[in-house]
């Protein structure tokens, strides 16, 4: 990369950090650069320095830029095999705990934590479970807490739910109203949504399960190590860590703290 381009990018991320306390300095440069390139077009700026000036003087521009800096795509039961493994192999071990805590890090608009809540309900464990669902996107967290999804997405979710090994119908878990599905209150009340950054915040609870999917790929190696360090410190002994289908601990500084539990499905167990 040319030195000037590198410098401009670093200065912009530093400015964002100093002014707004969002820390993107440890993100994968290749990915973030591409999205900033799109933002330049959208905001009519010709350089990152030009964008930096706008961002520093106009909080509304920063809020709009946040949508470019993070990627919010998600689904319920994304990669059904991952959730099937959770249901069939992790849940039986969770039954031995009187109270069950899960941390879903980078939960976006809530589809992933609700998928876990649904499985726990179907397995009769929801009443003694709490799910902490965290993200840095306030907009997404608000949507997540509402738990309202367009019905046209629900057909696909139902199929993924079935393939995750459920013998129930997804419709047992929501009520349909005005073209949207509203996740049942009993599920929503078990999920605590909060603002938490894997880049700047610390461990906040001891949990038996951490699920962090398609978040680490956006980080560079040292930020990945910070995040997996938080997961290690948050998990109880023999607790479970689940990652995205193309994420692994193979190149992680913390790989020795974990062993493979279900390799293909990216479930790890803390030593």
């Amino acid at each position: 990369m040319t030195e000037d381009a590198e410098l401009e990018l670093r200065l912009l991320l530093e400015a964002i950090y100093q002014k707004y306390h969002y820390d993107f300095r440890g993100y994968s440069v290749a990915s973030i650069r591409r999205r900033l390139q799109q933002a330049l077009g959208a905001f009519g700026c010709s350089t990152l320095s030009g964008l930096q000036e706008r961002v520093l003087h106009d909080p509304a521009t920063f809020r709009a830029l946040l949508r470019y800096l993070t990627v919010q795509v998600t689904d319920m039961f994304r990669d059904p095999g991952y959730f099937k493994t959770f249901r069939e192999r992790v849940v039986p071990l969770l039954r031995t705990y009187p109270s069950i805590k899960l941390w879903i890090a980078g939960c976006a608009t809530g589809e992933e934590p609700y998928s876990f809540a649904i499985i726990l309900r179907e397995e009769g464990l929801l009443e003694r479970s709490v799910l902490y669902a965290t993200d840095i996107s306030g907009e997404s967290l608000e949507k997540a807490a509402e738990g309202v999804y367009p019905l046209d997405r629900i057909a696909a979710f139902s199929e993924l739910h079935r393939r995750s090994g459920s013998s129930h119908s997804l419709s047992e878990h929501y009520t349909a109203a005005y073209g949207a599905a509203v996740i049942d209150r009993s599920l929503r009340s078990r999920v605590v949504f909060s603002d938490h950054s894997l880049a700047t915040d610390n461990v906040f609870a001891e949990v038996q399960v951490v699920s962090c999917r398609n978040v680490l790929i956006y980080f560079d190696k040292s930020l990945q190590d910070r995040a997996t360090g938080l997961f290690r410190d948050s998990l109880c002994r023999k607790g479970f860590l689940g990652l995205g289908s193309k994420e692994s601990l193979r190149f992680s500084a913390n790989s020795s703290a974990f062993s493979d539990f279900a390799r293909e499905e990216r479930w790890y167990q803390k030593q």
Binding site: M1, S28, V29, A30, R34, V71, V73, I217, Y218, G244
Partner: peptide, 10 residues
């Protein structure tokens, strides 16, 4: 630029 591969789900 450090000679690593990255994946993303954009």
């Amino acid at each position: 630029s450090g000679g690593l591969l990255s994946l993303n789900a954009d």
